[in-house]
Simulated scan of single mutants.
Amino acid sequence: MEPPSNMFWDPAILNGVFNWTAWYRQDATLMWLYGHKYTLNRSESNDARELFGNTNFHKEKTREVAGMISNCKDQAERYKLVHKMQKYVTVDMYGGCYDRLCERVSKSENKSCDEILKQYKFYLAFENSLCKDYVTEKYWNALKREQIPIVNWKNISENIVIPKSYINVYDFKDIKSLANYVKK
């Protein structure tokens, strides 16, 4: 499930050993994804409308932007994007790379990390590697928490994710433009 940049050995030594692959990429023999999109049929869509009605998830949330990073030296250098964003919008960061460990905060507030993160409208679902088709649980968990994921994807197929369900930092000319969009 890890991209090549997170493998600390040379996978080429396995060339010719296996004739099938199970990986997160679309060109694998078996796609092994972190999450799956699903199109609702008419009945399921009606049930969802009835269940959620006119719920305004955005209005119910009290905080703006959160993220969690524990791998501090990653190929994508996520910390640089976070630092630039924090100049323009409030971003609460959790994880081993920041002074806020969600586990510590959640125990003092008697909540789970998910409950704490669910208070935020946006979640920085930044991947640690910018590899083809690499979409991890960060994106899918943000959707489960009814958040808008902010992603750092450069080479992701729309077949893997839900179209228009995220904000990509690379769709903006600069971080200030992204921050203005998030504020809006």
Results as ranks from 00 to 15, higher is better:
residue 58 H to M: 12
residue 26 Q to N: 14
residue 80 K to T: 01
residue 83 H to G: 00
residue 17 V to G: 03
residue 30 L to E: 00
residue 66 A to C: 15
residue 64 E to H: 08
residue 27 D to K: 14
residue 86 Q to H: 00
residue 54 N to H: 14
residue 51 L to A: 06
residue 83 H to N: 02
residue 49 R to A: 05
residue 49 R to P: 00
residue 79 Y to T: 04
residue 88 Y to C: 05
residue 80 K to H: 02
residue 72 C to D: 10
residue 44 E to S: 12
residue 12 A to E: 13
residue 27 D to F: 11
residue 72 C to Q: 06
residue 9 W to M: 09
residue 41 N to A: 11
residue 19 N to K: 15
residue 35 G to P: 06
residue 64 E to R: 07
residue 53 G to T: 14
residue 70 S to V: 11
residue 24 Y to A: 10
residue 40 L to C: 02
residue 59 K to V: 05
residue 23 W to F: 07
residue 82 V to D: 14
residue 87 K to C: 02
residue 72 C to K: 01
residue 79 Y to S: 09
residue 49 R to K: 15
residue 10 D to N: 15
residue 43 S to K: 14
residue 89 V to N: 03
residue 51 L to S: 03
residue 9 W to K: 03
residue 87 K to E: 04
residue 68 M to F: 06
residue 18 F to S: 09
residue 82 V to C: 09
residue 44 E to N: 09
residue 8 F to S: 03
residue 45 S to M: 03
residue 49 R to D: 01
residue 34 Y to L: 01
residue 24 Y to T: 05
residue 79 Y to D: 07
residue 15 N to S: 05
residue 20 W to I: 10
residue 17 V to M: 09
residue 29 T to I: 12
residue 86 Q to Y: 00
residue 82 V to W: 13
residue 71 N to G: 00
residue 62 T to A: 13
residue 43 S to A: 10
residue 40 L to Y: 11
residue 30 L to K: 13
residue 48 A to T: 15
residue 8 F to V: 02
residue 25 R to E: 09
residue 39 T to H: 08
residue 47 D to E: 15
residue 22 A to D: 04
residue 41 N to Y: 12
residue 82 V to H: 08
residue 69 I to H: 03
residue 69 I to M: 05
residue 11 P to N: 07
residue 66 A to K: 02
residue 75 Q to R: 02
residue 29 T to G: 06
residue 88 Y to F: 15
residue 89 V to F: 07
residue 42 R to K: 14
residue 28 A to V: 14
residue 30 L to P: 00
residue 54 N to A: 09
residue 24 Y to S: 09
residue 31 M to D: 02
residue 54 N to C: 07
residue 59 K to G: 00
residue 23 W to K: 02
residue 31 M to P: 06
residue 62 T to S: 15
residue 90 T to G: 01
residue 26 Q to C: 12
residue 65 V to Y: 13
residue 26 Q to P: 04
residue 34 Y to G: 10
residue 70 S to A: 10
residue 29 T to M: 06
residue 55 T to D: 13
residue 11 P to H: 05
residue 39 T to G: 01
residue 89 V to G: 01
residue 26 Q to D: 10
residue 17 V to L: 12
residue 64 E to V: 03
residue 33 L to F: 08
residue 42 R to I: 08
residue 12 A to C: 01
residue 47 D to W: 14
residue 51 L to F: 12
residue 39 T to D: 06
residue 55 T to W: 14
residue 87 K to T: 02
residue 43 S to Q: 07
residue 11 P to D: 07
residue 88 Y to H: 13
residue 78 R to L: 03
residue 14 L to V: 02
residue 82 V to Y: 13
residue 59 K to S: 10
residue 35 G to I: 03
residue 57 F to C: 05
residue 41 N to T: 08
